[in-house]
């Protein structure tokens, strides 16, 4: 299988087998649009899914100030935006995709989608498109909200923010694909996703600086998959380190080397796990 659906660059069309009766295949993009359009329609028709993926994350973000997170060095705007990115990536991209892929696999829909001209990567991508669009939509909404509240401040280093969000998105898709391997039903996703949704997120530095933890625990926490995303967002938005202090004399780029390295390493691991763990059909 091909396990990197969202990152596939627009490669040139593979040459279709030439026969007299056949015109050129529809473009990859047209195929994908057709399949992804149907997926979007399915999402809209499923009220539970709409609630879970559109309203829930917004409510969670809205709850952030009430929880007394942030403040101090980091202003409310960057705090809300960081929380929005993490909540969207974890609850929407990761959790939603695990559930969706597993449900489609167990319903034999994935296997059926593979019987046509869509490539394996296109099947996975089409299934993910609505989730990815909603994820991006959430971020836009929260950003607009922050601006409306007058809490917007330009990021110290926008490139780090962009890298953190995009690499985080890719990683969550890969981890979602990998997690389907040990998730037998859509319901059991509630449990199998806990390591990321609960543990990694709690220890990501989003709720409190990791320096508040015992050294051995913060040492581990810095290598968990969500942490580097939060580190990069803190550095990019407000120039604060993982310990919650201003970067000071050292450049943000120097501080960014470690989380960026951890994130890239996770993407490599995620790719391997996704390739190994994914199944197209239910286990018999």
């Amino acid at each position: 299988m091909s396990a990197a659906p969202t990152t596939r660059p627009a490669t040139p069309e593979r040459t279709a087998m030439t026969t007299a009766t056949r015109s050129a295949a529809p473009s990859r993009r047209a195929r994908l649009r057709s399949a992804a359009g149907a997926e979007a329609r399915l999402l809209v028709r499923n009220r539970t899914a709409v609630f879970n993926s559109v309203l829930m994350p917004l409510l969670l973000v809205a709850a952030v100030p009430a929880l007394g997170i942030g403040g101090g060095e980091v202003g409310l705007g960057p705090t809300l935006l960081t929380a929005a990115v993490v909540i969207s990536l974890v609850y929407l991209t990761y959790y939603n995709l695990v559930t969706t892929y597993v449900a489609r696999r167990e319903d034999l829909v994935l296997q059926r989608m593979r019987t046509g001209e869509l490539s394996d990567g296109e099947v996975l991508t089409a299934t993910a498109v609505p989730t990815l669009l909603v994820t991006v939509g959430q971020l836009v909404v929260v950003t607009a909200g922050v601006v409306a509240l007058g809490e917007w401040s330009a990021p110290v280093q926008p490139l780090l923010v962009a890298f953190g969000v995009l690499a985080g998105l890719v990683l969550m898709v890969l981890l979602a694909i990998a997690s389907t391997g040990f998730t037998r039903t859509a319901e059991s996703a509630q449990i199998t996703t806990l390591p990321i949704v609960l543990v990694s997120t709690a220890l990501s530095g989003m709720f409190f600086p990791l320096s508040a933890l015992p050294e051995w625990l913060s040492g581990i926490a810095r290598f968990l998959p969500v942490t580097p995303v939060v580190d990069l967002l803190h550095l990019g938005f407000s120039g604060t380190t993982w310990e919650g202090d201003p970067v000071g004399d050292v450049s943000v780029w120097t501080w960014a080397v470690f989380p960026a390295g951890v994130l890239v390493a996770w993407i490599v691991v995620g790719t391997v796990l996704a390739r190994r763990g994914f199944r197209w059909a239910p286990r018999r």
């Binding site: 056949r22 015109s23 529809p26 057709s34 019987t115 046509g116």
Partner: peptide, 28 residues
């Protein structure tokens, strides 16, 4: 073309939508 012994279709699309979607992924 192929018909699997057992395969699934999303339940929330209509027959016409299902066929139209599939047609959109095919060359001819």
């Amino acid at each position: 073309g192929m018909l699997l012994q057992s395969s699934g279709l999303p339940g929330d699309l209509t027959v016409a939508e299902t066929v139209r979607t599939w047609a959109g992924t095919l060359s001819a």
